[in-house]
Nucleic acid binder design. Structure first.
Length: 451
RNA sequence: GCGGGUAUCGUACAAUGGCUUCGUAUGCCAGCCUUCCAAGCUGGAGAUGAGAGUUCGAUUCUCUCUACCCGCACCA
């Protein structure tokens, strides 16, 4: 079932009214990046703050963390990202199917049956790599070794004598290589022990984090739905392995509350029980929570039972115990994990799609963003009924100043006539408009319009 | 990454191998007017994605690049 709104309509509105722009637009853009304008950043922050309130501040069993984007590369080795992301991929030149070169017989394409259609395998890694600190390079020749600290390898020029008696040998410092995190989850797992040491919370408890993650997607798509830089809101909920199902169901319920808080209609959200043979190797159960986006039904957030996969990996790789010792003296164990993982951009898209409506009034189209009030970027617009009556304008300024100081997200609007202002505010989802008229001057009352 | 499409004021559309380089609507800015749900008038700013080629002359034709949209693949 496709919603009536097209992705292009949403993108057009987002651009026109200052929600979301193409990243680096003046230079022709950068694929898979998007920038937020004044209204967009307000909406985004409202959504993220709502999440933090619902899932951290309002709950007794939740703790917040905020880990660094750059992490020791051992994190990604232990989690399996380094290995699984450097698989060589081959592509069939006939049917364009792609396969892991080490998993198939490359003499014949399994999809179309053609022979000899595979080219050279290419390494493809979805993690953005980077170098932490200067790169150290060693130049070796006969009887001579020069060590150089190079801040930018492209600037390094080594003159090689014609005798070729010198060789340049780059000793890339493996410790200096790192990645922009492809998920925020590992920043939580690596701090599990720290939080236990500081607070020793009763099990079950959860850690929550919001932050940027980066994936070098093959093809970013569908407006902000799949981009190369995005924001995640993730929870790792640590449980006694015997009680994981209980926790799973609890979070399932909390996720539906989240949908309600975002104002997403129930008939547009769906649960997809991921079939056993599609599950990631570490997961015993996963539910994809989907939404009917303009481009089709697609994943809005996911919840996975990750067992003790991550903590056990860290325990093995670091040599540090990740066991939790229950306070009742029963034997220690490595907790299991329920992971609800939310995408901020996907939530924004869903909210915009759900809120976007077009009314027909006397044959005129009226665009209204029916945002939940607590998400609206502008809570209230203040207008003088007439722009050319100084007494109205000054009174309105006074009211505006009071509200602005109190609530912040208040907009001054004196452009055109009153009807136009209402329309304009409708289009950005402003719930309240306050108009100062001549009665205000007489009896200090104002007109409050509820969208 | 493959195939198809698109790229013109902020937005949505129009037009053109030249002539004074581009029209409309809306939005925006200034002024006038206007006593509550897109009234009107006057004036103004604002665009051919980037680069190369063909040509006397390119926004228009060709090529390359970039970005977005549609389909496929991918989504650990």
């Amino acid at each position: 079932m496709k919603p009536e709104v097209s992705l292009e309509e949403i993108a057009s509105l987002a651009k026109r009214r200052g929600f979301i722009y193409q990243g680096s637009e003046v230079y022709g853009g950068l694929s898979g990046t998007w920038d937020y304008g004044p209204l967009g950043v307000a909406l985004k922050r409202n959504i993220m703050q709502l999440w933090w309130k619902m899932f951290v501040d309002d709950l007794d069993d939740m703790y917040g963390v905020d880990a660094a984007i750059l992490m020791n590369q051992k994190v990604w080795q232990a989690s399996g990202h380094t290995e699984t992301f450097t698989d060589p991929l081959v592509e069939c030149s006939n049917c364009h199917a792609r396969f892991r070169a080490d998993k198939i017989d490359t003499s014949k394409c399994p999809t179309c049956g053609q022979s000899g259609t595979f080219g050279e395998p290419r390494q493809f890694n979805m993690m953005f790599d980077t170098t932490v600190g200067p790169t150290s390079t060693t130049i070796k020749g006969e009887g001579l070794t020069v060590k150089a600290i190079v801040y930018n390898e492209k600037d390094l020029k080594v003159e090689v004598p014609p005798t070729n008696q010198f060789n340049t040998v780059k000793l890339s410092d493996q410790n200096a290589t790192s990645y922009l995190r492809p998920e925020t989850a590992q920043g939580i797992f690596t701090n599990f022990k720290n939080v236990v040491d500081s607070f020793y919370p009763d099990l079950p408890f959860g850690l929550a984090q919001q932050g940027k993650a980066f994936r070098n997607e093959i093809s970013p798509r569908d407006f902000v739905f799949r981009s190369r830089e995005f924001e995640q809101m993730e929870i790792e909920y640590f449980v006694d392995p015997a009680k994981w199902e209980e926790a799973f169901e609890m979070w399932r319920g909390r996720i539906h509350e989240w949908f309600k808080a975002l104002g997403l209609p129930e008939d547009k959200t769906h649960e997809l029980e991921v079939p056993a043979d599609d599950l990631a190797h570490y997961s015993k159960r996963t539910i994809d929570f989907e939404f009917d986006f303009p481009h089709g039904r697609d994943e809005l957030l996911g919840m996975a039972y990750r067992t003790d996969f991550d903590l056990t990996n860290i325990q093995k790789a670091s040599g540090k115990s990740m066991e939790y010792r229950p306070k009742d003296g029963s034997p220690a164990f490595v907790p299991h994990v329920i992971e609800p993982s939310f995408g901020v951009e996907r939530a924004i898209m869903a909210v915009l799609v759900a809120a976007y409506t077009v009314d027909e009034i006397n044959g005129e189209k009226r665009h209204v963003l029916k945002l939940p009030k607590h998400l609206a970027p502008v809570k209230c617009a203040v207008s003088p009924l007439l722009k050319n009556k100084p007494e109205l304008v000054s009174k309105a300024k006074e009211v505006y100043g009071m509200l602005k100081k109190e609530f912040g997200a208040v907009m001054w609007d004196d452009n055109g006539n009153i009807g136009k202002r209402y329309r304009r505010q409708d289009e950005i989802g402003t719930p309240y408009c306050i108009t100062i008229d001549f009665d205000t001057l007489d009896d200090n009352t104002v007109t409050v319009r509820d969208r």
